[in-house]
Amino acid sequence: MTGQPDVRGPRTERHPPEEASAPRLAWGIRGTGSHLPGRQVPSEDLSRSMGLPPSWIERCTGIRRRHVAGDGEAASDLAAAAGRHALDAARLDAADLGLIVLGTSTPDELGPSTACRVQALLGARTAAAFDVAAACTGFVYGLQAAVGWLSTQRGAPPYALVIGVEVYSRFLHPRDRATRALFGDGAAAAVIGPVARPYGLGPVVLGSDGSRAGDVLIPAGGSRAPASPATLAALGHTIHMDARAVRDFITAIFPRLVTEASRTAGISPADLALVVPHQPNPRLVASLAADAGLSPAQVAIAGQDVGNIGAASLPYALDTAVRARGVGPGDLVLLAGFGAGLTWGHTLITWPP
């Protein structure tokens, strides 16, 4: 106490800045698109090539076929084609983009970012471009990056293109049943732009557990084990996967993400119009619907025709669902991603008109 009189005057009530200037707009998905290479490899043919009964792969995984990139066809080529489809669906062109975010584990090269290659292919001259490396959760991580960028930029075009793409066929051990049976090539994308509240993306919740980075990885080709005759001979540039550990992770994480997202939103899983998960093994993911409190009709499963296409898996399933069954204004759509790293993430979308 100083003994001095209080000359500050009466206190006035002030609203927090976020209330005083609450934006009338949110960020939502304005269009989706996907692209698959032309060559298809049926699971029956692949099973025979590995000395397995013809029905083995489809019986174990639900995958009927996968698409394989052609000679000279890179991740950026697939990604640019998917991006064009998403822009068409949003009734925009490349000049309207302020940002391109691309998730992949199979980039054109270690540097520069494949997103920059896509920017050039699209002619999106005003767009910033970068990659995110979050494996099969890359699309969900990309959504967070896009929303953060859109929310803080001033003067840039208010649209972002988020893409997931993989060309896994170049990174498969020819005799590894666990990986060859699952993985395929493809790309999918979404345009993010302004929508009127209450529509739009909810918070994007992300997580990771780096102590389990060894569960799925391509061990060679980086700074720890650069390319050498020894890494080539050891097939270190192919995908190595602990199938049991990955299966246990999927079995635990998918129901958990549905429960967390529903509880946070104050709803029950039954209130969700559509749940779009990553689907490395479509049969396994579909079997987990009941554990997540969902009916089979709520879960968008599209991996049976493409296999595991990594960062493209979730946006491909979303694009397929939007085109095949439709999503109505106000429908609650949950995106649930999970993958190597280990990484995971989810976001609840109130679908815009």
Results as ranks from 00 to 15, higher is better:
M1H: 03
R8N: 14
G9M: 04
G9A: 06
P10G: 02
P16F: 06
E18D: 12
A20K: 12
P23I: 00
P23Y: 02
A26R: 07
T32E: 15
S34G: 05
H35Q: 06
P37A: 03
V41K: 09
S43Q: 12
E44C: 06
L46D: 01
R48L: 14
G51I: 02
I57M: 08
R65K: 11
R66Y: 06
A69L: 04
G70K: 10
A75E: 07
S76T: 05
A81I: 00
G83R: 07
A94E: 05
A95I: 00
A95C: 04
D96G: 02
D96A: 15
L97M: 04
L97G: 07
L97N: 02
G98D: 12
L99G: 12
I100G: 04
V101A: 13
L102N: 04
P107T: 02
P107Y: 07
D108I: 01
P112H: 00
S113I: 00
C116F: 00
L122F: 08
A124Y: 04
R125H: 08
A133H: 11
A133P: 00
A134D: 01
T137Y: 04
F139N: 03
F139G: 02
V140A: 08
L143G: 05
V147G: 03
T152S: 15
A156I: 00
V167M: 10
L172E: 05
L172R: 03
P174F: 05
D176R: 06
R180T: 08
L182T: 01
V191M: 06
G200W: 09
D209A: 11
D209Y: 11
S211I: 02
A213Q: 15
L217D: 09
I218S: 13
I218Y: 13
T231N: 01
T231S: 15
A233L: 06
G236Y: 10
G236P: 10
G236K: 00
T238G: 08
H240F: 10
D242E: 12
A243M: 02
R244M: 04
D248T: 07
T251G: 09
T259V: 08
R263F: 01
G266N: 01
G266P: 08
P269W: 05
P269Q: 04
L272C: 04
A286D: 10
S287T: 02
L288T: 09
A290E: 15
A297Y: 08
A300W: 14
I301S: 14
Q304S: 14
I309N: 12
A311G: 11
A312L: 09
A312Q: 07
Y316G: 04
V322H: 15
R325T: 13
G326F: 11
G328H: 13
L335T: 03
F338M: 13
H346F: 11
H346L: 11
I349T: 13
